[in-house]
């Protein structure tokens, strides 16, 4: 019996694309919520920032932790992008075929994939910009520093596009991931699929509303706050030497 060694790489590529996508999507779900702490108060957002800088674990802030996390996410992002690139239409002809196919079919899931391709492509660029800034300026995150970045450093439009792209991409991705691997399929896959789809749409709506509200708040602070004595936030309750 012929029994050559099988090439495991295609399986691992597929699995790694799914796994990195899953981690990134879960990360985004947390990210948007943490960032929305600004909607509660500047103080809470500041405390969330301190938490990620390790203040509640070490009693001192280490912005390097944020750099490290951003770098880790950047690596996952690059791996995911590289693997997803395999699925992109790679010539004008292929693009035309898939475009005509989705237009002709009027089939929601095929169109959702087109959204994945478009939002994924957008994020190659805008996602990279955001990640690099987080990596290189980890200490410039805070109620005022972030607001300053949104307004004075003109990151608002980029964040707006990134928000729409990343939220749609993440939840459409999670939906497709569940179907791809048969997650919680149950006895009636068509019913679980309909439920997942509804959940996906609801989550996209909720997260976009939350994300846009936070972005609105940062913009408001950026426009109204007096930045003449710097972008650092002065907490009422936590007093630190370096801050």
């Amino acid at each position: 019996m012929k029994q050559e060694k099988i090439d495991k790489v295609p399986a691992w590529l597929d699995f790694t694309q799914s796994a990195t996508g899953l981690i990134l999507a879960l990360f985004i779900m947390g990210h948007i919520l943490f960032e929305a702490s600004i909607l509660v108060s500047n103080e809470l957002m500041y405390k969330v920032t301190l938490m990620f800088e390790g203040y509640y674990f070490f009693g001192e802030t280490y912005p390097g932790i944020v750099s490290f996390l951003a770098a880790a996410i950047f690596i996952l992002f690059i791996v995911h992008a590289a693997l997803a690139l395999r699925k992109f239409p790679s010539s004008y002809q292929q693009y035309k075929i898939i475009r005509e196919h989705t237009t002709r079919m009027q089939h929601e899931d095929s169109s959702l994939w087109m959204i994945q391709v478009i939002t994924g492509f957008m994020m190659f660029f805008i996602g990279s910009v955001h990640l690099y800034i987080m990596m290189s300026q980890p200490s410039n995150i805070g109620p005022y520093a972030s607001s300053h970045r949104v307004v004075a450093e003109f990151m608002g439009p980029l964040y707006f596009m990134l928000l729409l792209a990343v939220i749609s991409h993440a939840f459409i991705g999670l939906y497709r991931l569940a179907l791809k691997w048969g997650f919680m399929e149950g006895k009636h896959p068509e019913i679980s699929r309909a439920k997942f789809k509804l959940l996906m749409k609801a989550m996209i709506a909720v997260y976009i509303i939350v994300g846009l509200s936070s972005l609105g708040k940062y913009t408001y602070i950026g426009l109204t706050h007096d930045f003449s004595d710097g972008v650092k936030y002065k907490s009422q309750t936590i007093h630190m030497e370096n801050h």
């Binding site: 029994q3 099988i6 295609p10 399986a11 590529l13 899931d109 994939w113 179907l179």
Partner: peptide
Amino acid sequence: EEYYELIGDENGVFGCMTLLG
């Protein structure tokens, strides 16, 4: 393993993009 040889690549099951058409 023999089944893997048949469809364990990007022309097989790992090429499926779950468009569900």
